[in-house]
Design a protein around this nucleic acid. Structure first.
Length: 473
RNA sequence: GGCGCGUUAGCAAAGCGGUUAUGCCGCGGCCUGCAAAGCCGUUUAGGGCGGUUCGACUCCGCCACGCGCCUCCA
């Protein structure tokens, strides 16, 4: 039985799909005006893991993750760059797709773009006005009237009184209530706009998610996810809009992943302390980044630092080292196997990936002791359930993929710069041969010299019963 | 000010009212020409003060500290 922590109820609830065997999930995606940072990577990896686990558990999943392609910051950035909005957003959508592919993320089933749902938004806004949940203000904007929705605050646990008391922003005099939020912004000169019954303008941020989720998943669906910071006001407002317009519950389960932090502070654009995914991938293998994210629980804060990435790399190296030289068949997982059952229990307990990872390490230990093909297969296949350990071990250990990344450049942004070294695979193999001869001749000084030479270049030699092999440190 | 979350060994990070988490690092041993990898063993825990209990890191209360949301933010 799968339990999920539901922000709405503030506890773990047993997951019961609306339609048996079917999961409909909506996740708030990116606003595409810049490269994705590690915080975005976490959302993508976490909900990729969630959808993979649902599928591994036999569910038919429809996973929708939207793209916000119209927004104040997009307009501003396009103006700054002297670039059209279309060109700007497409550029960063392409970059996002590249980044997420590197991280082993399976594309969501549907990735709707806000600008393609304007009509739906106009319809929903009209419905909200009709039902008394929204009003056309004197400045031309259309606002949602929070007072009209009795349950406003049920997700974030905030009351309108508390919110007003803590009001820190200049109150917009056109609003009936300071907490009212905009559904339709009337266009200012030079801004992109769409025609509407309330004059030319563009949608507010929140309305797009209400429309896109209903378009693809229906008015009532299973899971709505996103980063913690979207809980309020974004998700609270989505609920007010959707439930106000449709008169039914929007989503049964609300999932929120924790932040990525730097020095114990939230990584964010506004703080300027962010690292883009591609920046991090210059130094670290993408699977290391994925593992780094999955070895923490999705709701916990995750501190980013090179030391932690190094640690994750060493850990993942242990798993791949165990799988080295093993013939592994990708048969189905026997969930009755004690370790597989433990893995399943962990995942079923609100996606406890740290515990699931511990299972992988226990299997690696068993594999190192027994060399059992069955254990190797279980290790690799369980890893595959969360999108790990699917490469040839030597591809990971010897970093041969670095050559592949080296060829990827995006808009003058170096995507991956492999350690510049004169030691390509051929050179390494040659030196290993020379060293083997030296060893045969008992010339250990020469053998050690070669090993030292390679070690200085970041190549670690290992003499095994199968012969001499190597990996990158 | 309001609401919420967290505090586990050198670092990272889980479960659990009593039985080895796990990984990295350190230390000792085995293996090795020597290493590396691996195996075996091992040192470091549960913010503070009370309470419940035969027994609490685990439940309850208070305090301290840290973080987040209340404004765009994954």
């Amino acid at each position: 039985m799968l339990s999920i922590y539901n922000t709405l109820t503030r506890r773990k609830d047993v997951f019961v799909p609306i339609q048996p065997g079917k999961v409909r999930m909506y996740v708030c995606g990116m606003t595409v005006y810049d490269f994705c940072h590690l915080g975005h990577a976490r959302v993508m990896v976490v909900f990729d893991m969630v959808s993979r686990w649902f599928r591994a558990s036999g569910f038919d999943v429809t996973y929708v993750r939207n793209i916000t392609d119209i927004d104040d910051k997009i307009i501003k950035r396009a103006n700054e760059n002297g670039e059209t909005i279309d060109k700007l957003t497409q550029r960063f959508i392409d970059a996002m797709d590249e980044d997420s592919a590197k991280l082993g993320i399976i594309r969501p089933d549907i990735e709707p773009r806000a600008t393609q749902y304007i009509q739906g938004m106009l319809d929903m806004i009209a419905t909200l006005i009709e039902k008394g949940h929204a009003y056309h203000a004197d400045n031309g904007d259309v606002f949602y009237s929070v007072r009209s929705f009795a349950e406003y605050g049920k997700l974030s646990g905030k009351s309108l009184e508390d919110l007003r008391a803590g009001e820190r922003v200049e109150v917009d005099s056109f609003k009936k209530d300071p907490m009212d939020f905009v559904l339709w912004k009337s266009a200012k000169p030079g801004e992109p706009s769409w025609d509407s019954p309330w004059g030319p303008g563009r949608p507010g941020w929140h309305i797009e998610c209400s429309v896109m989720s209903a378009s693809h998943l229906g008015r009532h669906f299973d899971i709505h996810g996103g980063g913690m910071d979207l809980q309020f006001p974004h998700h609270e407002n989505e609920i007010a809009q959707s439930e106000g317009a449709h008169g039914c519950v929007m989503a049964n389960t609300w999932m929120h992943n924790g932040f990525v932090r730097v020095d114990d502070e939230k990584m964010s654009k506004s703080l300027g302390n962010f690292f883009t995914i591609r920046e991090v991938l210059k130094k670290y293998d993408p699977e290391v980044v994925r593992f780094f994210i999955l070895r923490a629980h999705y709701r916990s804060p995750l501190n980013y630092s090179d030391a932690h990435l190094d640690d994750a790399k060493a850990s993942l190296t242990r798993l791949y080292t165990a799988l080295r030289w093993k013939e592994v068949s990708t048969n189905n997982i026997d969930w009755n196997h004690p370790q597989a059952a433990r893995f399943k229990d962990a995942m079923d307990d609100d996606f406890n990936t740290p515990e699931a990872m511990a299972v992988l390490f226990d299997l690696a230990n068993e594999l190192n002791k027994t060399g059992s093909g069955e254990t190797a297969a279980l290790l690799k296949n369980l890893g595959g359930v969360v999108g790990l350990l699917q490469r040839e071990p030597n591809e990971f250990l010897q970093g041969t993929t670095q050559n592949l990344y080296a060829s990827l450049f995006v808009n003058n942004n170096t995507f991956f710069s492999p350690t510049v070294t004169n030691y390509d695979n051929q050179k390494i193999d040659e030196l290993i041969k020379v060293r083997i001869e030296a060893k045969k001749a008992k010339n250990f000084a020469e053998a050690d010299r070669i090993r030292k030479e390679l070690a200085d270049a970041g190549i670690v030699l290992e003499d095994t019963p199968q012969g001499t092999t190597w990996r990158r440190a």
